[in-house]
């Protein structure tokens, strides 16, 4: 697999507040990665660091195998980015903004722009400042998709979209990723969006990527257990995140379901019930 994004030992602090502390991360080609983290965990900082929009204190970042701050212009054109906040020139009309941005790209697709503008009913004559937040976000998405990028970075892309708008945005991303060479990284608080489109989940906590794996693997590893023993018995549950003892057993949440332990419990006639959890609960448990 080709490594598209490779981050080693990234640190970043604002004033005395350290945000990223020796973060390591590798994203491979074709992955659709959902990035989760609490408010202030540093998701935007991380994404902006990859794009060299935000300065870093130390560490090594490479994108498409090139050093992140020395990307060739052709490599830059292969990246699409939708920021969390609109930093586009607000006095330009949508039409003028699109033509302005178009001149920087040789791979720009007018077809894509026309298709999305009509589908999302964007009024080209309006000034950016006159658009609703949802419409601004759609324009930013169009600007990011028009150059047909190979690496897409979205910082909470769906935050100001209504459910129908979000679903439509997800559909667009899914159409894109049916081309297996396209890599997507998006930060979000909406776990149900992530569960639909991502194949991998990264959790940013305490300045590091504390969990990074296939969504399916996470769902089968991080589970709730109810342990019930017939006789009085002390049971140690491996990879315990949280547990509560009661008269005849325990309620527990584990970060890794241990198959060998399960077999052992069965042999000792201890009943273990496994209850899977949705991603939102998993995230809360892992970052508690």
């Amino acid at each position: 697999m080709t490594c598209i994004v490779n981050v080693k030992n990234l640190t970043k602090s604002y004033k005395n507040q350290s945000v990223l502390e020796g973060l390591n991360w590798e994203v491979e080609q074709g992955d659709v990665v959902g990035l989760l983290g609490k408010n202030g965990a540093g998701k935007s900082t991380l994404l902006k660091s990859l794009l060299n929009i935000s300065d870093i204190d130390s560490g090594v970042i490479s994108i498409f195998g090139e050093q992140y701050n020395q990307l060739s212009s052709s490599s830059k054109a292969r990246i699409g980015y939708v920021p969390q906040e609109n930093d586009e020139i607000s006095w330009l009309s949508v039409k003028d903004l699109i033509s302005f941005r178009k001149q920087f790209y040789s791979t720009w697709s007018d077809e894509k722009v026309t298709e999305l503008v009509s589908r999302w009913e964007i009024d080209l004559t309006k000034k950016i400042a006159e658009l609703s937040p949802g419409q601004v976000q759609r324009v930013l998405i169009i600007l990011a998709l028009a150059p047909m990028p190979e690496l897409l970075i979205f910082d909470e892309p769906a935050a100001s979209l209504d459910p129908a708008g979000r679903r439509d945005f997800l559909k667009e991303i899914l159409t894109l990723v049916s081309d297996e060479n396209i890599t997507v990284i998006f930060s979000t608080h909406i776990t149900s969006d992530l569960e639909r489109i991502a194949n991998k989940v990264a959790i940013l906590d305490d300045g590091k990527i504390c969990y990074f794996d296939d969504l399916d693997v996470i769902k089968e590893s991080v589970v709730q257990l109810t342990v019930h023993c017939k006789k009085e018995q002390n049971i140690t549950i491996p990879h315990l995140l949280r547990g509560k003892l009661h008269s005849q057993g325990q309620f527990a949440v584990v970060s890794q379901l241990d198959q060998a332990w399960l077999t052992e419990m069965k042999e000792q006639d201890v009943e273990v019930t496994i209850n899977p959890m949705g991603l939102e609960d998993i995230f809360l448990e892992l970052t508690a």
Partner: peptide
């Protein structure tokens, strides 16, 4: 049901 704990491929 995407938000279920059971992976979608298994569903």
């Amino acid at each position: 049901s995407p938000s279920s704990g059971i992976p979608i491929y298994k569903q």
